[in-house]
Write a protein that binds this DNA or RNA. Structure first.
Lengths: 166, 166, 166, 166
DNA sequence: TTTT
DNA sequence: TTTT
């Protein structure tokens, strides 16, 4: 049950291969960074400016597995999730906050690359010869924050309490 | 022009009165925090858990003025904006990051409170007797990060470069 | 599994009380019409124009029950669903099409009225005997199409086939 | 100014090449049909079912031109617009209704095909003389309604009246 | 760190 | 720090 609405919609490109881990209960977790950008014309100079925004996205359960298997650095993804800020401590013990887009069973994801030429397309791309698919990421994503502990958060659809209408 | 999609949709309640400032060019900026929450039933204990998420939202230009005038602590708002993470330095000179939902001319906002009894409702709520409306916030919002400098970002609709189709 | 994205987000007011029916399998179906409106200034005359859009929304299962219980003519609702056009035959046997917003388990709904004073609020408002508040209906909603048969469409979360990643 | 929210988000493929016309004021209008589909497993038979939804989308002004220039049958598009139902009369004088997704200056569009190999990419793909790629059309799109008259509706950003805050 |  |  949600009181309020908390929804994020992104279309962007992966900055690196996904980082997939498994939780104690066997559920997969995949972390990616997604770039979106916008450009505008500076009024003073008349020059076109560009700003790229990097989003941390976390997938759970089956979507984490799909992302780990099919998405790669540069892949274009549609993502629908929710905003979540988690607290952690840096080396000096100070509180730090990281905001992520969480994509669980209520969210969704679409791979927008259909390049039948590169072994990534629908249906045929899974068993790629060079082993890039479904395995360890080629260049591990440097997570600037410690590995987060997502346990204790609801991740499956039936974890949600739907008894109270509002 | 946007390459990709970066969109956030929220419905939540203000944690405090808005904090309104004015930029050198005369444009208003309003900062609020918005709470959304979800509840779920813990599988082990069977108990209902609740998690509240706090979102930092920044409004520009006319929407900043409307928010400053009509929204108050507790108000329910619909907000549509984009995610933006800005970098700042803490006292020790370390880089810190804060993620906000930016609502500029491309975004939108709706006040979802229509309580004609409290001087906040449509049309008649502006000239509230107790002066809470439109003036200084009752209890100033404690911004844990230094006042951000939003200059240099596009804020008006015509700042966007729409010449390049994609 | 969805190939593509089909999503509708509305905030509007009910044109009439919900119409609730039950399907052979016992699942509830609720039909409402929701009004959204926008205004703009006519360039020629300088006058403000207003246009109201009426949306047909269909809720299934638990959300249908909640809507039937708590929403009334004039209620403000947030709705998230998908577009669906169904074909039907008019009296003369001609094909006709009606487009609706379908809100099933993948969609969501929020009642945005919190008027604890009028018997509509959470928990206590259910048994409002008749005095349906929310302002007199402007024009009673005439269902111009015959009662639709929604059987054969997936309505529950587990009806969806999530085996194929894309 | 909008009272309420009326928003549609689609990702789908064009069923045919866009149909571009020009209004008396010189503004372009582009009509397309966009297919989204979902699949689910039938509970009784265990068989995977698929349902394709066809959406009528209308673009105005600059986006209409971009669509007309770069989108082709089979192209994948992201579309953000609003729902609008217009009334028209069939040959026998009977009222008929058609619901469309209107994409004007407040909406947005993204071409999701980036196939630099097929003459459709940014900048170079415009003059594809005939060989419209994107896969053979399954069934040529039949415009079942007469050419609509969109005059009298606000189409540009500054047509909107932003004076009233809510 | 992506993409065009 | 909000709301129910």
């Amino acid at each position: 049950m949600a009181r309020g609405v908390n929804k994020v919609t992104l279309i962007g490109n992966l900055g690196a291969d996904p980082e997939v881990r498994y939780m104690p209960n066997g559920n997969a977790v995949a972390n990616i960074t997604l770039a979106t950008s916008e450009s505008w014309k500076d009024k003073q100079t008349g020059q076109v400016q560009e700003r790229t925004e990097w989003h941390r996205v976390v997938f759970f359960a089956r979507l984490a597995e799909v992302v780990g298997q099919y998405a790669r650095k540069g892949s274009k993804l549609y993502v629908e999730g929710k905003l979540q800020t988690r607290k952690w401590q840096d080396q000096s013990g100070q509180d730090r906050y990281t905001t992520e887009i969480v994509v669980d069973m209520r969210g969704s994801m679409q791979l927008l690359d259909n390049r039948p030429d590169n072994g990534q397309g629908a249906g045929q791309g899974v068993s790629a010869p060079n082993g890039r698919q479904g395995g360890a990421p080629q260049q591990p994503y440097q997570q600037p924050t410690p590995t987060p502990d997502y346990s204790g958060y609801p991740q499956n659809f039936d974890d949600f309490d739907d008894d109270i209408p509002f």
